[in-house]
Amino acid sequence: MNCEECGKRPATLHLTKIVNGEKTEYHICEHCAKDKGDMFSGFGGFGGFGDFGIHQLLSGLLNFDPMTKKEGVGIKEGQGTVQTKAARCETCGMTYAQFSKSGRFGCSDCYEFFGDRLDPLFRRIHGNTQHIGKVPERTGGKIKVRKELEQLKAALQQYVAKEEFEKAAEIRDRIRALEQKITQS
């Protein structure tokens, strides 16, 4: 089979992308792959032995971010997209726009800062947004307790505001017990 780009050299790189069950194939030669730059970056080095740079492809394939389209084509900025652009991970500094370009998170906190905005992306890739597999014994337990603590503290403030001090005291004791549990583990 000859290269789809130049039609001259034999195609040595074969890429199949599948988006929502829709299949597209690329068959190109090494030379054209190098010319393609971005799209097939990660290729080279080992002389025809590269990985295809799924991350560069990812954003294009999934098209999950309106920003990337907009920047290239020049559609007017809508309110929603401005908000998207502003999203930024405070820990590592990665913006949502950068993430959608590179297809990779900068640190584990990015997940938290980008929050529910990631749901459509996960739904496209995995058909799901919620993990149901293995949970690390130690971390998993702590997270549960921490979540419970947050809820209790909110409730405590409400009771104090309503001056229901008996109930507030009850909750305070439960908070103390949980906090002890965390420091012990």
């Binding site: 990812l58 997940y111 947004t129 549960k144």
Partner: peptide, 22 residues
């Protein structure tokens, strides 16, 4: 100390691996 989130599971650099990471 693993990067783990109750909702998303094991957090990975690429969104295609998140969850179980396997």
């Amino acid at each position: 100390n693993y990067a783990f989130d109750e909702k998303r599971g094991y957090l990975t650099s690429c969104p295609t691996n998140v969850g179980t990471g396997i």
